[in-house]
Each structure stands twice: as C-alpha cells, then as structure tokens.
Design a protein around this nucleic acid. Structure first.
Lengths: 214, 214
DNA sequence: TAGATTGTTAATCGATTAACAATC
DNA sequence: TAGATTGTTAATCGATTAACAATC
C-alpha cells in the first residue's frame, strides 16, 4: 500500500487560517464574507482563497461572498473537525504539557484522554486535566482506551521504539513532534511537526533581509 | 520594500533533516556520505537530495558521495547556524517554557538571553536557566539587551500589540507561535509556526487512509 | 577496471496567478 | 441598474523527477 499523501496540501494548510477569520466574522454577526476580505487579512491573493475554498465544495454568491455559517461547516467537515477523535499523548514533558493545555484542539475534535510518562512523580497525577499514566502500561492502556491518535512528544532517542509500541497497540495516526523520521507501516498515518525547518526558513530570511539592507 | 520570501523554501525546510543525518554519520566516523543514503533514511528521492545539497555550494565526489565535515559546515553556513543570534522569548507559559528547554536551538546559534512574562510569580526567577523579566520592561530591556530575534508565545489576543512593541524596541525578526497573522513593517522578518495547519494535514490524511481501507 | 554516484540539462508535475464571462 | 465578486478556463511559475554523460 502506498504512503498516504495529501493532495492540495498547501491549500489544506491554509484552511485553518481561513476558518479562524471566518469565525471572527461569525462572532461579528456577518452573514457573508468575501474571498477578497479573507485574502486581505492574510496577505494572500483573492484568487488563491477562492481556489482553496472551492475544495470544500462551498458555493459563493457573486457580489456578496460566501455564506459564513455554511462556510464554517464546510471547512470543518472537509477537515473532519466536526467529529470527535480520541488521542493519547506520549511524553508529558515541557512540550507535551504545553500541547495538553491547548484548548483550541479540543474545539477541533481532538480529545486527549490520557498521557503517558516515565516520571513516577507525574504518574497518577493530572496535567491540564489529563490523567498521567505509567509508560509501562502504554500498550495495554491504549488498547483499553481504543485511542486512534498518538501525540508523540518523547525525547528523540525513544521515538522509534515508542512508535512501534503504539502501532502494536492499534494506533493508526501519529502526530510526531520529535525530530526522528519514524519507520512505521504504510497503513499508519504520520504527520511530523518540525520546528527546525521553521527555524531554517527564519534563518535564511534573516540573511536575505540583512543583505537587502546593507 | 517587498516582503521577504525564501526562494527554494521547500529545500531549505529539508536541510535540517539532512544535517541531522549527516551529523550521525559524522559521529559514526564516516568521511563521506552519499545522497542515496540520506534519501533512503528520509524516504526521499536521491535526485531531490542532490538538488537540495547543491544550493549550499558543496561538491560531491562520484562514487563516494559528499565529504561529511565540509557538508556539515556548508549547510550550517548556508543557514547562518554557524553564527550566534541573540533572542528574547515573550510569554513564558507552557509553550514558551518548552521552547526554552530545547537545547537543540542553542547548537544552531539561537541564544535566548531573557524571557518576559506578566506573571509576578515568574518574574525575577529563571526557567531552564533563562531569567524571566517583567512584561512592563519589555521595550526598555530589549533595547538594552540588543536582541535581534523575538520568540512570540503570548496568548493570541496579545500578539499584535506585543509585536508592535517588539518592533519599536528594535527587534528585526519574530518567530511567531501564535495563530495571529502579524501586521508589521516589511523590514521585519516573521516566521509563523502554525500547529493548526499540521493538524489539518493529519486530519485529511486520516480520512484518506480510512477511505482506502473501507 | 567496473559501477555507483555525481551534476547538468530537459521533461513533468502541481500550484499559483491571470483573464474573463456570469451573476446577484 | 452598476459593479463587486464569483467560478472556470488558460497561462505562468516553480518544484520535482527523469535521463544521462562525466568521473572517481
């Protein structure tokens, strides 16, 4: 089976930003919002916004724009954010704790129902309301909880071994915050979040900008 | 002045992963590493790795590959990771604290010399060795410290106002971890790190994968 | 030497942008 | 109505991939 790949990936990446702005319009009581307005807000081209929104299946009205309620629903449905997904977090360190504190993800259907850590001082307690379980019970408890997603925030050296246990326990999607490229079966979806690549872009932009000014 | 944009952005994003693998080879005592090996490790095409490495100016040897020492140096130089950059972190909450704990960035020249927070309980103390200063002293202290980069981890509603203060204080680069699109002068470099877009990709991959299996 | 790997040049692919008729 | 905004079709742009001669 081939590796899962998202077509229109750049468009999909932009959808959450659109959703954010459209939600503001919704709170503002607007019934319609135009692609032009969204584009201005995000420094994008209106045609790009229209093309992106088209993949959600939503139809706009010339002159008025897109119906706000329907647009929110269409984006959320396209992303699957209108359904609940149960997740566990593995590695309740600094980053893991920070992620558990993000209420935003809850709004998008991501429910962290348990976290795992090796630190005995943490096990048995809660962080941001999420119970911390022992890493030793990882496989057993994930099977019990029937979690679908694992958020992986263990130190990099443990990433591969942990991922293998997760797969054995039935996890089908891994959100990987380590800088390790995981080797897992093709049936398992992995999304890697890589801060280093963002920092690389920033670094190169800094040099470009400096070159321009001098 | 036009907005700073990175050409070859996708290539730049991949460089840190290459660096990671090449460093492993270096620790392993290898003198040469081939593009093929790097590609296999990351599930990429060898031709892509060669094209990417070409932008750093490094020259490989047919049959052997690229000289490890020189390659590490070339990538680090291209990214500007061979020089020191002073940074402040604004918003020492969960995420901010996690970022201060990342030693990896220190290795790449990013030195967080101070953090700012509104919480009186934190001010005056240290987190991961970084002194926490009062948010009230933000402008004044950044000028004093002559920091170049600001890592922005305040709650979203404060992002825009904080960014404006940062710019006034002379910050020229902002690493933005809020989900706010910042409006700053074109001379200021902004790199936004957006977890939502990563989660959007994961969500769509999950649906694609599920569709495939059923 | 033989062959794995390089760098270059060309072809393909996909994303962005442009142009514009349709329309509320 | 007049004109802002839509969706579609085509053109452009940039990134990825293919082909292959050069070479250590």
């Amino acid at each position: 089976m081939a590796k899962t790949k998202v077509s229109f990936a750049p468009s999909v990446r932009r959808l959450p930003s659109y959703l954010h702005i459209i939600r503001q319009a919704q709170r503002n009581g607007d019934y319609y919002i135009s692609g032009t307005i969204i584009a201005n807000e995000l420094n994008l081209e209106p045609i790009q916004v229209r093309k992106d929104l088209a993949i959600t299946g939503i139809i706009g009205k010339p002159k008025k724009g897109y119906p706000v309620e329907a647009l929110v629903a269409a984006i959320e449905h396209y992303l699957g954010w209108d359904e609940s997904h149960e997740a566990v977090l593995v590695g309740a360190g600094n980053l893991g704790s920070a992620l558990m504190g993000y209420q935003e993800f809850q709004l998008h259907g991501l429910h962290v129902i348990a976290a795992f850590d090796t630190d005995p001082a943490k096990v048995g307690g809660k962080i941001h309301g999420v119970p911390i379980l022992s890493m030793d019970s990882l496989e057993e408890n994930i099977k019990l909880l029937r979690a679908e997603i694992a958020i992986l925030t263990v130190p990099s050296p443990f990433a591969q071994a942990t991922a293998e246990t997760l797969v054995k326990a039935g996890i089908s999607s891994i959100w990987n915050f380590t800088n390790t490229k995981l080797k897992v079966p093709d049936s398992v979806v992995v999304q890697r979040e890589d801060l280093s690549s963002g920092y690389a872009i920033l670094s190169v932009m800094m040099q470009t900008q400096r070159g321009r000014l001098s």
